[in-house]
Design a protein around this nucleic acid. Structure first.
Length: 577
RNA sequence: GGGGGUGUAGCUCAGCUGGAUAGAGCAACGGCCUUCUAAGCCGUAGGUCGCGGGUUCGACUCCUGCCACCCUCGCCA
């Protein structure tokens, strides 16, 4: 159950019973300080003011009417009209004793939710700039599926555009020299792209041929399409290796690139014309929007078809949303895309809404993020001025993890070590990105990204291994352990309450698309467990009976919640490290 | 010029429809391993929340005016 929502509803009811208007929110949230109880309701003060009543007196009336018998131990009016809520330990213990493998998280009424993420470009290698969309998108996908939603992963890859002319022309030349090029030398896509560009810029004949291929490709020419398909395939084959290594759930079936909507574009343009939204302007087809202004202060024109007949990506995005409505039947679409595209998306969505291309109830949500900067505050580059490849970052992380494990975990077998290295190195990189909520540019720093101490994935993984270790020492099965929870010590109570709150944070992540909230939660849970571990021994002299079994039960719940939570983030746990 | 975003500890970041004394990690300093894994625990220090007004019981949060930086604004995506 979502405890916070439950309490909020109880206080909302009590506020209404005490004379507040229907629907007055309880404004319940975890207390700011330990001596303010477990939760606090802030709903009294705003409403008492409106009603012209003394807030403290009104708070007292609310307390008298709230129905939380057996759940709440103490309700106190504090300060200007806060209500501090202290739960009974027995009730909390009972709830935890009844937890199943879902760690207290209920499923929600199922929606169809499209998540648009990753979106690498064809004929380019994935670099650190792709990390954020890929990792955050995948975490949100996992959370939504855990809650029972029907999630459609959409990898909106950059597989269309004029650049394919030069890429095809270059590939043609390379294949003349070596027909097996696709299996061998094309392993370095960055170089392939660079060479293509260089030839295009320096060789007239090549450029002419390239432009011709663009026309032929768009016209449906078989050979050009085959060449194009090869480029897409070889790129996605390489990207799949990165996805697998990152423990990202995307597969080839989720690839729905820009080209997929090509056939829909002419109809989208005619539809917008018919509805009176689009008009001819200087040879192009344009939608003028009052909602946006251009440099001259006039309403902004968004081109949906160029004067040469070509379509632009606003048109593609409109078609894409239409597709997601008509073919996928989406209730929500979450876009994990660079913040630089915010205005483009807004324009496309404004047109979509005006033309009523999708139902009003279908929500389009842009979860933006900024560029990756170096610690000098400038766009992040390597020493030679290139982008940092994702594979290189992961390799570096792997090396650092290997060195650390060699030093700290010498008693593990080679296989165990490798498992730890994989879990820790990938986890650290992912967590570093997942735990931030930047909507704008953010700083990439090797040492922060690859740190294994403090608020990092290895810390959470380490907490998990400590639980596993406790169970090994106790010689009982962690998986099957079942015992009632009893709360006596302060550290037990803090930990128990935190365990109760997993459901709240999972709901938040689903609603807002913000996995960093889950990171914060898991870090706090681990911290609470570490303190509990220090204060409340389990496998020691004099610890027996219900005290011991309850502590084991709490520990088991910690392990289960950590494992589940980390899995939602796409991070693996290990039993030893 | 229009629109959007950002500005919180030395550094990287949290701060949940306005709530109580603004929180973490890293870095710094001081304790804790013959006792369930020290990738840990406990503690100290560190702040004019960019600057000035305003709204109110209460502002990092809302309004307004500045400052700084970033993104974006008809035929790339």
């Amino acid at each position: 159950m979502n405890l916070r929502n439950f309490l909020d509803q109880s206080f909302s009811n009590a506020l209404v019973a005490a004379g507040a208007p229907e629907g007055t929110p309880g404004m319940v949230r975890p207390s700011a300080k330990a001596n303010f109880g477990d939760y606090q309701s802030n709903g009294v003060m705003p409403v008492a003011k409106k009603l012209g009543m003394n807030p403290r007196e009104f708070a007292q009336k609310v307390i008298e009417r709230v129905e939380l018998d057996g759940i709440v131990e103490k309700l106190e009016v504090a300060g200007p009209g806060f209500i501090n809520i202290t739960l009974t330990s027995d009730w909390v213990a009972k709830q935890l004793s009844d937890f199943d493998s879902r760690c207290g998280v209920d499923t929600q009424s199922s929606q169809t939710i499209v998540v648009d993420y990753s979106a690498p470009n064809v004929a380019k290698e994935m670099h650190v700039g792709h990390l954020r969309s890929t990792i955050i998108g995948d975490a949100v996908v996992r959370v939504l599926e855990f809650l029972g939603h029907n999630v459609v992963r959409c990898n909106h890859i950059g597989d269309w555009g004029t650049q394919f002319g030069m890429l095809i022309a270059h590939l043609e030349e390379l294949m003349k020299e070596n027909p097996e090029i696709l299996e061998s030398e094309l392993s370095d896509l960055e170089e392939f792209y660079r060479e293509s560009k260089q030839k295009y810029d320096s060789d007239e004949d090549f450029a002419l041929r390239a432009r011709g291929y663009v026309v032929k490709l768009q016209g449906g020419d078989q050979w050009c399409n085959d060449m194009w398909r090869k480029l897409v395939d070889v790129t996605m084959e390489q990207n799949q290796k990165t996805y697998d290594r990152l423990n990202v759930t995307l597969t080839r079936e989720n690839t729905m690139g820009e080209s997929m909507y090509n056939d829909m574009l002419p109809a989208v343009v005619s539809e917008l014309k018919e509805k009176g939204l689009a008009e001819e302007s200087e040879g192009a087809t344009v939608v003028f929007l009052d909602e946006f202004k251009n440099k001259d202060g006039d309403r902004m024109g968004v081109i949906i078809q160029k004067k040469d007949g070509g379509f632009l990506y606003t048109t593609t995005d409109i078609a894409c949303a239409k597709y997601r409505h008509e073919q996928l039947n989406a209730d929500r679409v979450l876009y994990f895309i660079d913040s630089r595209q915010a205005q483009h998306l807004q324009q496309a969505w404004t047109i979509i809404r005006k033309a009523k291309i999708i139902p009003e109830t279908m929500s389009l949500e842009h979860h933006a993020f900024g560029m990756m900067l170096g610690n000098d505050g400038r766009p992040f580059k390597t020493r030679t001025g290139g982008v940092v490849k994702l594979a290189d970052l992961l390799n570096e992380s792997q090396e650092r993890a290997a060195a650390l494990i060699e030093e700290k975990s010498s008693d593990l077998t080679a296989e165990q070590k490798q498992a730890v290295i994989d879990a820790v190195s990938i986890g650290a990189v992912k967590y570093a990105d997942l735990s931030k909520n930047r909507t704008t540019d953010y700083i990439f720093e090797w040492d922060n990204m690859l740190s294994f101490e403090g608020n990092t994935a290895p810390y959470l993984q380490y907490a998990y291994t400590r639980v596993a270790s406790v169970f090994r020492k106790a010689e009982v099965s962690l998986e099957d352990y079942q015992a009632d929870v009893e709360i006596k010590e302060a550290a037990e109570r803090t930990l128990a309450l935190k365990l109760m709150q997993f459901s709240e944070v999972v709901d938040t992540v689903a609603k807002d698309g913000t996995p960093h909230a889950l990171c914060t939660y898991l870090y706090e849970l681990s911290g609470n467990f570490m303190s509990f571990y220090e204060a409340c021994p389990i496998n020691k002299e004099g610890v027996e009976g219900d005290v011991r079994t309850s502590r084991l039960a709490l520990s088991k719940l910690v392990a289960q919640t950590l494992k589940t939570g980390l899995d939602l983030l796409g991070i693996k746990v290990v039993d030893r490290m």
